[in-house]
Each structure stands twice: as C-alpha cells, then as structure tokens.
Simulated assay, not measured.
Amino acid sequence: MSSKSNVLTIGNDNRESSDKLQKTNNPKAYFEIDFDKHMQKILLDGEKPQNVDETSVGRFAATEIMRNGKQYYEFGPDNFKNGTIISGCAFSSKDMLLRVKNRIHKEHWVNENVIQYRKNSMVHIQQIVSDVMREEEIEIYQFLSYLNKTKS
C-alpha cells in the first residue's frame, strides 16, 4: 500500500537571498549598524579594523561565597563560576577592582580581591559593582565624544 502526500511550498528554490535591510519607519532599527559605522569613522578614519581583538574587552564579576557562616564577596575577571551575582563588560578588571575598593571601607577587605561583609548584603554589592561599571561606561562615552569633536 502506498501513500501520497502533497506538500505546499511557498516561493521557489531559485530565489536570491538579499543582504539589503528592509525599510522601516523605526529610527532605532538601524542603530547598531549606524553606530558601528560612526565609531569606525571616529576611531579608525572610516577603515574597518584589521583583526578584531575579542580579548580587548573582558568581563568583571562579583561572586558570593559563604564560609563558616560568614559572608564573603570576591571581585575579579568573570570566570563564569557558581555564585556570580553580577557580571559585565570591562576593559580592565584591575581598574574595576580599584573602583570597587574606593567604595568599600578598608576594614572589610580580607585580601586583594575578597571582602567579608554583613549577611544579606548581595543587593548592596550588586549596586556598587553596577555603579562602577556605569562609571566606566560614562568615561568611555566622554572619551568617544571628545574624539568625535576633535575629528570634526
């Protein structure tokens, strides 16, 4: 016994894939492409980067650790380990650590990158790390704005 089935196909196999972007009335739709082109113009005189260095921007993280009933937080490069409470892009983990150190009193530091802090303080630590990441973003933006003004 044989069975026949009909399959509905839309379009044809000879269609060409288009790399052109569809037109839209949403001005934010092209932001990423426009932003990349604008940054190339500012930073590289319109040239594309020869080799993209994916390690030039790393990640910084805070990790929560509970030992002997005490609350600890470790700061440093993001290694995607258990206990990470916040993580984000950073050009230099060492610089981010210095920014965090400037916001947390010396008596909390048990070594170079670990603090002992009160229990249930995760939200407070997340806020500190978030603030220093935002601070770095603002400085980068200000530098790019300066470059944009000086190139004009």
Rank of each mutant, 00 (worst) to 15 (best):
P77T: 03
K4E: 14
Q22C: 10
M96P: 01
I115G: 04
L8R: 08
V100N: 00
M133K: 05
H105A: 10
W109F: 06
F75T: 00
T150S: 11
S145F: 15
L21P: 10
V52R: 14
M66E: 13
K28G: 07
I128N: 00
K81S: 14
H108G: 03
K41Y: 06
R59A: 09
L21C: 12
L144A: 06
R67Y: 09
L97I: 01
Q40W: 14
D13W: 11
T150Y: 13
L98I: 07
R59V: 08
K119I: 12
S92V: 00
V57Y: 03
V129I: 00
K101E: 04
I85W: 05
I33Y: 14
Q50V: 08
K106D: 00
I115P: 07
H38N: 12
F35C: 06
I85C: 03
Q126Y: 04
S18G: 08
R134W: 14
R118M: 01
N79A: 09
S87I: 00
D131N: 14
N120W: 02
K28F: 13
F75L: 01
K4A: 13
D78C: 03
N148C: 10
V114W: 09
N148V: 06
G69H: 01
E112Y: 10
K106V: 08
A90P: 02
T9Y: 12
K37P: 09
H124D: 09
M133R: 06
K23F: 15
Q71D: 03
D19W: 09
W109G: 01
K149T: 04
D131H: 07
I104Q: 06
V132M: 03
S145W: 11
I10V: 12
N26R: 08
Y117N: 02
V114I: 08
I138E: 02
M96G: 01
Q22K: 14
E32A: 11
K37L: 06
Y141C: 10
G58L: 00
H38P: 03
K23G: 14
V100T: 06
V132A: 03
I65D: 12
E54T: 14
Q126H: 04
D34W: 13
H105L: 15
D53L: 11
Q116N: 04
D19M: 14
F35S: 04
C89I: 14
Y30S: 08
F35P: 11
A90V: 02
D78Q: 00
K94W: 11
F80P: 14
